[in-house]
Every structure is written in structure tokens, then in C-alpha cells.
Design a protein around this nucleic acid. Structure first.
Length: 718
DNA sequence: ATAGGGTTAG
């Protein structure tokens, strides 16, 4: 999971727990350290003339100059209405495309001409090359030097050396060969040699070595050109050293070299990967006003960025910009935008885009189809998914193992058991794709989702027989399934396999074990607790604390113990932990007070955001994503609150809304039994005045009158 | 067959 979603999912949690904040890749102040461009200013680049020479930090940076520019844009496109202002704010970041061709020319940020490659000289002694290459490819690191000497008794020509260098993998060989060439001094190693060497190091993600080479170039006075910079920047990006990528980009301006569009798109992608949408847009617009006609690659970068942000308006903006610039989307752009549409939750528009792409005569590839299948699966559009699958077969569109696995996962989500089985057979017969742990896990998932535990176990064992390493998810699915079926011995059996195989039980799996403990009979609990002791002993300790009645002053003990566990738990498992622990307290007859304490700690730690919604006419309680026990605790706490509210406002009842509602959700395919049913049962057993809504499944309502009447009765009873 | 940028699965 990405760090940004960790940050955004529960901000308040971090405050309370004093979690170490996941730091952004580098501080904003560094991000804004663009170089002071000191290249010869073009006409109209007035403010650039005033910038001081390089190597001082006091001059206005390019981004300082860009910053007000983006603020200007914000002002120009300020939304004129205040409805949906959240969405419009996003829109307002996107400049209108009429921006090109402004009255005053803007200072240059990129060169409109790509760096050209000199034509290659004809080289007659390339005939030996295959022999040399294949030999070097097969030789181990220890003999490498000796084999080079043997294969190249005569110094190679410059061209042969370049060809060999280019073909060497892994990076250690390329590095060795490069050093051999350098020490041999057969000819001067120019920029091209360094560029090829850097590219090879990039394959091996050796960014430190890349920087050493680049520094070496600088020290030796070898020119760094656009190819050098774009390779360094993309290497930094692939190694997640975004600050270094920006450092080298800045250095270009400092040394007076203009990036061309390749380098420029590379840096756009760096900012995009950092989620710096505004910076990307400023750079994009700035280059546009320089007369840049971006190509498909640049638009793919923009599209991907908006996809990651789930920003539908942004995707539309990209499409519009392409039209304005007269750029036709190619297959990659379509693939990116389709995926982006999926991430923005727009399956219908993805389908339309796909149709448009077909109409243009483009043939989808594996990635296109993977994106679409994922979207249809997520949207639960089984009809469209099956239709697409038929089309894939009849058009003989390409399949790869990722697409197979995506199809299998979709079948699991949509409970398409038959289809999954035939796909799985297809895959085995295809000859090209061998089922991997992902495929087997999808099959396990399919069977466990449908309650077919024995079938799932069968697939699980066939995975082991085929020497495919099971992953933790397959174990989690099985444990969940057997837990629901109260087959505790099978739960333990699966857990044992996991331990034997040395698979690390992750937080999800521990959450699953907790949920098993919540539902199993008391004489079975110890078996599961034994598993949990191996997986996460602290949770067993916490359960012991919960089993002990609170003697008034150990409130903080529980709080600190729980906090300690949550701090080291991944975000997406924190709420499930709390849910399950509450269920354990209630189902295993620990004191109810413990369940209440857990719930309020959960609220304190920000695990249950957005529980209450107050509108003028209706106050509601959103119990979706709570377990039944947690839902009851939340509901009772809410009722207590409402009672206090009504009592306080005894003279001003008009400030209360007319309607109160509780939402449990109707229960998706995945949670077939659903919270709604359990909550309805709970309400029936209690005297609370809420009734099931006739119109909306998963909704329970009470009027203000109901509530006041109920409270009055309570008072009389007391 | 000799150097650079973008797209695929819980």
C-alpha cells in the first residue's frame, strides 16, 4: 500500500497514537529548490535576466517563479458557484486550454528539439558479435575478466565495444567491462559510453553507482547530455530517490543545458509519482506556453497521475488537452486512462473509452484487458465481464498470466465458480502460462468465498504438490472459511502448514484468527490461542487483559496495551482488530464494560471516523464496516448520547431533527449474512425504538416522537 | 544489432 493512503486514511489516529509519521519522500522546501536558470535569456524572459549566477542559493528559483504562476491560474479559474465546491476546487487547478499562445512570450523551460543522434558508422566486424555476446552472457562473475581477455585479444573497435557494453547483463558485468575499457585506454570513453553504462546500472537499480559514474563524468570534463540526464533521472525514480532525480534535473539548468521533451516528461513523471499535481501542472503549462506539443508519453504520465489521485475531472482534462493539442491517444495512453477511470470509480466511462478505442481500430493488448476486467470485477458487472471474455476468445486477443490471474480474481469476487474452474483448466492447457501462487490463491479464494472449504483445501494441497509456494493470503482465506464453518481443527491444520513453510503470518491473518476466536466454542478457544501465540503473542496478552474484569483504575493499562499493538499494526487491519476484540468480549462472556472500553478506545484512536452524520432533518449512525459487536456498542453509545441530548434540550426539542437513522448496509455478496440481519435480531431483542426501513434494506429508523416517548418511558421505569 | 521518457493483478 502506498504511503499516501496510509496518511490519508486516519489522520486523527496518528495524533493519538504518536505514530511515527510516514515521512513524505522529501520535504516540500527541497521540492521547491529549482535551479536559478542563468542561461542566455530569450526575449521577454525579463525576470530571468535578474537571476544571479549559479552556485548561490539566494536567487529566485524556477519554481519560485512557477509558484505565483500557479496561483494566478487558480484565480482565473475560480469556480463561480459554491455547490460541490470540493470537486470544483480540484477542477480549478486545471487551467483552461486556451492558455497557449499568451500575449507575452514566456521564458523557456525546455528545448523544443529533441537531442539528435548522429548517424551510425558502418561497421564490418560485427560478425563476431553474437559469439562474444553469448559467451559473455553465460560466464560467471569470477571468470569474467579472463574471458574478456580471451575473447578480445586485440583491442575492440569503439563500435564493437559499444555493442558489447550495451548487451551485457547483469549490471556487474557491464560495470566490469566498462572499467576494463577505461583502464585499457583503447580510445576515449565519451558521453555515449557513459550513457550506455548508466543504462545498464539502471537495470540493476544501482543508483549509487550511477551517481558515481555521473560524478566521474563531471570530474573528467565529459559532457552530460539529455540522454545522460534522462537516464539518471529515471534510474533515481526507479530507485525511489526522487530528491536525487530533482537534484539532477536542477543541475541541467544550472549548467545551462535545456531539457528536451524526453527529459522533461521524465521529470514530470517524478513529480507525478510524488503526487505533486500542482507542480506537474505548472511545469506542463509552462512548457505548453513555450510552444511544446506534448506527445502520447507525456499524456500518459498525466493520466496515470490523475488515476492515482482517483481524480475523474483530471482524466477528462487530459482527454481534452489531447484534443486541443491534436494528439491522438495511442494504446498505452488508452491503457493508462482506462486504468485511471477504474481507479476514479467510473466503470461506465471506462467501457465507453474502450469502445472508442476499438472504433479507432486499435487492438487491445493484455494490459488493456487486464485493466477492464479489473474494473468490471470491482463494479460487479458480471454481464460485461463475461461479454468481454467471450470477445477476447473470439477475437483471439492476447492473454498472459497476469490477465488470467485477473480473470480468476474477478471470478472470485463475483462468485463465478464454474467460469473460474474452466479458466484455470484453460490456463494449465495453454502451455504458455503456468499457474503461480496468485492463480492458486484466486482458486482458493473462489471456493472459500462460496463456502466450499473442502474444494478450497484440495486446491491448496495441489498447489503444495506442484511446488508453488502458498502465500499468506491463501492461508488467510482458508482460515476465515473454516472459522465461519467452526471447523477449528482445520483452521489449526492450515495454520500449521503456514508455520512449516516459514510464511510470515501478517496482520490480516491475525485479524482472521481473532475473528475465529470470536465465534468458536469456549472449549476450542485454546487451540486458536495457541496459533495466535505463535503469530502475535501480544494479542494473546491483550485478550487476557480483556478477560480480567476492570478494577476501576487499570483503564490506562488497557489503553496503553491496545495502543502498543495498534501502533505496530498496518492501518487496514487496525479497525478489524478492534471489531474482533469487541466481538470476543461479548461472545465469550467477558464483561460488557470491556467491550465498551474497547469501542471508546477505537473512537479515540480514530478507527471509526464518520460514524455520526448530523443533517438538519436527520441524524444518522453509520455502522457499515463495523462488526456486529462493535455495531451494538456504537449504537448503545449513540443512544446514550441522544438521551442526554434530549434531556438537555427538554425546553428546545425543535433543535432535534425529526428523524434518526442507523445504516448497516444491505450486505454485499461477500458478507451475505450481513450486519443488517444480525442488527435486526439485536433490535428485536432490545427495547430500542428503531424499526427496519421498508424502502431501504440495511436502514433502521426512528422518529423524534418515537425517541422522546421511549426516553419518557425509561424515566418512568427508573 | 550500438545511448534517453509512459501502461498490467489481492
Amino acid at each position: 500500500m502506498s504511503s499516501s493512503s496510509v496518511l490519508s486514511s486516519s489522520p486523527s489516529f496518528q495524533t493519538f497514537l504518536d505514530l511515527p509519521l510516514k515521512s513524505t519522500p522529501f520535504p516540500r522546501s527541497q521540492l521547491l529548490l529549482f535551479p536559478p536558470p542563468f542561461y542566455k535569456p530569450t526575449a521577454g524572459a525579463v525576470f530571468l535576466c535578474n537571476s544571479t549566477p549559479p552556485n548561490t542559493n539566494s536567487s529566485p528559483s524556477l519554481s519560485d517563479q512557477l509558484h505565483p504562476f500557479s496561483l494566478d491560474l487558480l484565480k482565473q479559474t475560480q469556480p463561480d458557484t459554491n455547490e460541490q465546491n470540493q470537486d470544483n476546487l480540484v477542477l480549478s487547478h486545471k487551467p483552461k486550454s486556451t492558455w497557449i499562445n499568451p500575449s507575452r512570450p514566456r521564458p523557456k523551460v525546455l528545448s523544443l528539439n529533441r537531442q539528435r543522434r548522429p548517424p551510425l558508422p558502418y561497421n564490418p566486424d560485427l560478425t563476431d558479435l553474437p559469439r562474444i555476446s553469448s559467451r559473455l552472457a553465460s560466464v560467471g562473475p569470477d571468470e569474467f575478466s579472463a574471458v574478456i581477455d580471451e575473447l578480445l585479444p586485440e583491442p575492440p573497435t569503439r563500435e564493437t565495444a559499444l555493442l558489447i557494453l550495451n548487451s551485457l547483463r547483469p549490471w556487474q558485468k557491464a560495470q566490469q567491462f566498462f572499467l576494463w575499457l577505461r583502464s585499457g585506454k583503447f580510445f576515449e570513453l565519451d558521453t555515449i559510453f557513459y550513457n550506455v553504462a548508466i543504462k545498464n546500472l539502471r537495470y540493476g537499480k544501482q543508483f549509487d553507482a550511477v551517481e558515481i559514474l555521473a560524478t566521474d563524468m563531471i570530474d573528467s570534463g565529459i559532457e552530460l547530455d539529455n540522454v545522460t540526464y534522462s537516464t539518471i533521472i529515471t534510474c533515481a525514480k526507479r530507485c525511489s530517490k526522487f530528491d536525487r532525480a530533482i537534484h539532477w534535473f536542477e543541475r541541467m539548468y544550472k549548467t545551462g543545458l535545456m531539457p528536451d521533451e524526453v527529459t522533461y516528461s521524465a521529470i514530470l513523471d517524478v513529480y507525478a509519482k510524488l503526487g505533486k499535481v500542482e507542480e506537474v501542472l505548472s511545469l506542463y503549462e509552462r512548457a505548453r506556453s513555450n510552444g511544446w506539443i506534448p506527445d502520447a508519453v507525456a499524456y500518459s504520465v498525466l493520466g496515470k497521475m490523475y488515476g492515482e489521485a482517483g481524480d475523474y475531472e483530471g482524466i477528462q482534462y487530459v482527454l481534452q488537452e489531447m484534443k486541443t493539442a491534436g494528439v491522438e491517444p495511442n494504446l498505452v495512453v488508452y491503457n493508462t486512462l482506462l486504468d485511471a477511470m477504474g481507479k476514479a470509480g467510473k466503470p461506465g466511462l471506462a467501457r465507453t473509452l474502450f469502445d472508442e478505442m476499438l472504433e479507432k481500430g486499435l487492438r487491445p493488448n493484455e494490459k488493456t484487458l487486464t485493466a477492464l476486467i479489473k474494473i468490471y470485477g470491482k463494479a460487479r458487472w458480471s454481464k460485461d465481464a463475461i461479454e468481454l471474455w467471450d470477445k477476447m476468445k473470439s477475437n483471439n486477443w492476447p492473454m498472459d498470466f497476469i490477465l488470467y490471474n485477473t480473470l480468476l480474481s474477478m471470478c472470485a469476487d463475483l462468485r463465478m465458480v464454474k467460469e473460474a474452474e474452466s479458466l484455470f483448466e484453460d490456463m494449465k492447457k495453454s502451455g504458455r502460462c503456468v499457474p503461480d501462487s496468485w492463480s492458486y490463491t484466486a482458486m482458493v479464494n473462489i471456493y472459500t468465498n462460496s463456502g466450499m472449504g473442502d474444494k478450497a483445501l484440495e486446491v491448496f494441497y495441489s498447489m503444495l504438490d506442484n511446488n508453488v509456494e502458498p502465500n499468506v493470503m491463501s492461508c488467510t482465506c482458508l482460515i476465515q472459511c473454516f472459522g465461519k464453518a467452526k471447523r477449528i481443527d482445520d483452521v489449526v491444520k492450515v495454520f500449521d502448514v503456514l508455520i512449516q513453510r516459514g510464511i510470515n503470518p501478517d496482520d490480516r491473518l491475525c485479524g482472521c484468527l481473532l475473528s475465529v476466536i470470536a465465534v468458536c466454542k469456549s472449549d476450542q478457544i485454546v487451540k486458536v490461542l495457541n496459533c495466535l501465540t505463535m503469530a502475535k503473542p501480544k494479542l494473546v496478552g491483550l485478550i487476557n487483559t480483556l478477560a480480567t474484569d476492570d478494577d476501576d483504575d487499570d483503564d490506562d493499562v488497557l489503553k496503553e496495551e491496545f495502543r502498543g499493538i495498534l501502533t505496530e499494526t498496518v492501518v487496514e487491519s487496525r479497525r478489524p482488530f478492534c471489531n474482533c476484540l469487541i466481538d470476543i468480549c461479548l461472545n465469550q462472556n467477558f464483561s460488557k464494560q470491556r467491550a465498551q472500553q474497547l469501542f471508546s478506545l477505537g473512537c479515540l484512536f480514530g478507527l471509526y471516523p464518520g460514524l455520526h452524520v448530523k443533517r438538519d432533518r436527520e441524524w444518522s449512525l453509520n455502522l457499515r464496516s463495523l462488526s456486529i459487536g462493535a455495531a451494538c456498542m456504537a449504537f448503545e453509545a449513540w443512544m446514550e448520547n441522544l438521551t442526554a441530548c434530549v434531556d438537555k434540550k427538554i425546553d428546545g426539542k425543535e433543535s432535534l431533527p425529526n428523524l434518526f437513522s442507523v445504516h448497516t448496509g444491505a450486505g454485499s455478496l461477500k458478507l451475505a449474512t450481513g450486519l443488517a440481519t444480525s442488527f435486526a435480531e439485536y433490535l428485536e431483542k432490545s427495547a430500542f425504538p428503531f424499526k427496519r426501513s421498508e424502502e431501504t434494506p440495511g436502514r433502521f429508523v426512528a422518529t423524534k416522537q418515537d425517541l422522546i416517548l421511549w426516553i419518557d418511558q425509561l424515566t418512568i421505569q427508573l
